[in-house]
Design a protein around this nucleic acid. Sequence first.
RNA 1: GCCCAGGUGGUGGAAUUGGUAGACACGCGGGACUUAAAAUCCCGUGGGCAGUAAUGUCCGUGCGGGUUCAAGUCCCGCCCUGGGUACCA
Length: 923
Amino acid sequence: MNYNFKKIEKKWRDWWKSNKTYSVTEDLTKKKFYVLDMFPYPSGSGLHVGHPLGYIASDIYARYKRLNGFNVLHPMGYDSFGLPAEQYAIQTGQHPNITTENNIKRYREQLDKIGFSFDWDREIRTSDPKYYKWTQWIFKQLFNSYYCSINDKACHISELIKEFEINGNKKVQSPCDGDTQLFDSKEWVNFNEKKQQEILLKYRLAYLSDTWVNWCPALGTVLANDEVKDGYSERGNFPVEQKKMRQWSLRITAYANRLLNGLNNIDWNSSIKEMQRNWIGKSKGALIKFKVAKNVNSVEVFTTRPDTIFGVSFMVIAPEHPIVHKITTKKQYQNVLDYCNDVSLKSERDRQSNNKNITGVFSGSYAIHPLTKKTIPIWIADYVIASYGSGAIMAVPCGDQRDWNFAKKFNLDIPNIFKNTDVSESANESLECTIINSDFLNNLNSRDAIKKSISTIEKLNIGTIKTNFRIRDAVFSRQRYWGEPFPVYYKDDTPYILNNNSCLQLPKINKYLPTKEGNPPLARAKKEDWNIFDGEKMEYNTMPGWAGSSWYFLRFMDPNNNYEFVAEEKVNYWGQVDLYMGGAEHAVGHLLYSRFWTHFLFDLGYLKFQEPFKKLINQGMILGRSNFVYRKTDTSEFVTYEKRHNYKTTKIHVDIGLVNNDILDVEKFTQWRPEFSNAKFILNDSGNYLCGFEIEKMSKSKYNTQSPDELIEKYGADTLRMYEMFLGPIEQYKPWDIKGINGVHNFLKKLWRLTHNEKNKLIVTDVNPTKEEYKSIHICIKKITQDLERFSFNTIVSHLMICLNELINQDCNKRKIITDYIILLSPYAPFICEEIWSSLGHSSSINDAKWPKFEEKYIKEDSINYPIAFNGKMRFTLNLNCKLSKKEIEEIIIKNPKTINYLNNNQLKKIIIVPNKIINIVF
RNA sequence: GCCCAGGUGGUGGAAUUGGUAGACACGCGGGACUUAAAAUCCCGUGGGCAGUAAUGUCCGUGCGGGUUCAAGUCCCGCCCUGGGUACCA
């Protein structure tokens, strides 16, 4: 008698494939249900145990919905453009397409083994020209659109041109670049082609602008934030600086309000919504103009606390602010220049997180306070970010902690404007206070003072009320090879959309590196290497990783359509994703961009819904244990963990495959990556290189992944599926550990033994179940159904175990009970259940069975075992009939000898009876 | 720094709406079967104190306060860990 999972799983894998058990088509007679996973990036290290966690959960839910009669769309594909394949191409010269193809093959094998109910006929790959043709198509729509704030939707650019021809842009209410000039219709008509295109570009939803990038001069390329460690490139250890570069951006800010309000209409957990709200960062405040003394310029500041305007004692502007050059005095020129150069080496995150080491420089100029007319010094400091608000602030040290810290450091005034509040030790950021020393705002509380200050500022014409968003337009180009090429060419330095409807394919190039001039790899392609070529040159940038993933859920509905990105009748049938399962690390990236594109396609009339994902579950990450080596800065020498503090070092991830018990295999390490081939090591006293470790996100870039393959080999996919669910709540983060997998494997073995004899023949009887047996299975039906509805996947495993233990104790292998039981189990362990189902005599798949119906009558009890507590502490239990009234219960309790004992002569104050829950005796 | 989570036995976790803290497993200890091992089955298992025992009793859900008849759960203030922070996806 043995549970031969290998044989069973192979058998049903093949059967499902040849019977197309999981393929699905539109069926108007059935209710649809769309279950989607965040599709993976197929990395070279294969699927790791963290990936299936979400896939298993959603697969269970998809199977559950199907058992309840729904037509379930449950597809899978690959987000197959990305950095690692390109990195590998740079190292080996192999085309990323080959790497990607191999990786996908491996992923598919791994996914197949786990027994997912994916409809593989719908597979898509973002790097497939048949797919990215439509990603390019959406880009074309964005390019050809502008946002009309009057209609509050995206419109075709031709409507804007019409308006320009009639009225110029004076009446236009549309988000556009800050430097857009005003013109009338006559001027418009007289502009030449280039000028007109230049102006239109300022309104398009896809537009060109100068944005900051991490530029690594030594590598001649732009680096991802991920690839920069402490101001140096992770690859090669070269200095990285901030540089402005002309790039495509998408005007997501035009949708800020709708993206914010749309959150109210979707069933996501509140923390993710909160993160998106904060990311969008809507804040109301005022834009106030400060004139610069002895200078023609003025500086606008954005503040959410105009009530504190009389507390201003200096002004701070961002080092990148264009006005810096205009207001810096001769005397301060060198200081300011040096400071701005220093800052350009720092990343934005460093600037924001580093609040211990406050830096700044005086510009030499003063601003005139618009109300008091006093002069205040203008400083330049990196804690002010150029891209937020107006890139300048009025500093109120008594009311803002960062301003306070800055004032302390540079010995600036801290005037107090708060009644009965001490600001000598820290700033007062609370709104619960009364304003003083503030002229017309005196004795108002902050909330009223905000209103009054704004109305006064507007009346005096020194500022305006302004709603500001923290969200910035999304930079949409990358200086990479392995991404979607833009369907764009240039003529006279002006970008134009390709008129050709075919896919613009990635051209072949000889090397995947940037050119000597610092142009992206695509600049290596000659004219004849492009399948379509127009104008003087093609766009050399490619689209970012999130382009393809921003709309893939739509393509799954109609993956092979060559005429449209999705057919109308199909998108109308499948509609929104009903359940979207994926990692919380995508909270603001992918999930926000997808929402943006869906809103946009809705505006264009292609979709009937604005929000892509109705219900979202964030599976908590499975965390991995990472190892680190410590590289001495500017060298290729590595210091053992114990001695790392003796040197200035950078912490670098090292593949856990090269490490055993935290000890590095030095030999393997030098062979791991070419740049480490001449690595030298400073070892510890035992002659070893000890690595540091951390528990963090399991990710290929952290080299800490673990594959599910061995576990499937050893225990089978059913066990893996159940174990991943049994680990804990789906939404919780948990470190990976295979202790305990035996428990669920034993459970499946026990089920096998209950239902099979020594010869592996099914043994079920047709005898009618007993009352107790009915009770066991119906409690199980109830709990599992309830828990599935609330996505509590881990507790279901426990309920299944409890029920099986009871059935074993009852020696129950009765057909009626076993049939219900394996249907309940089948979403979790589809292979073993399909096997038993077929042994029970069914010719169709268990997936087409009906979910058992819970019946109250089987679990009804006459009495309940009440816990009796004294002052909240449980002392004993008492079995009481359910029909008893509160008064009758009270009488029984008081008379009980145990009660008298526990009261111990104390005066009884009252008895609290919570029906069906607890009885508490207060004394 | 900022935003968002999480912290319960030796371990993963359970406790759905404020109502018996530790379900279900792992691990560990003891026993049965066996020449032996594996497999399987049975019993015990948060900590302290008292008792031969049944049992009794006190402590206990990161730390410090608070609300309540009753707090892992609600409120206030901390600490630690993880995720995101706009070019990893």
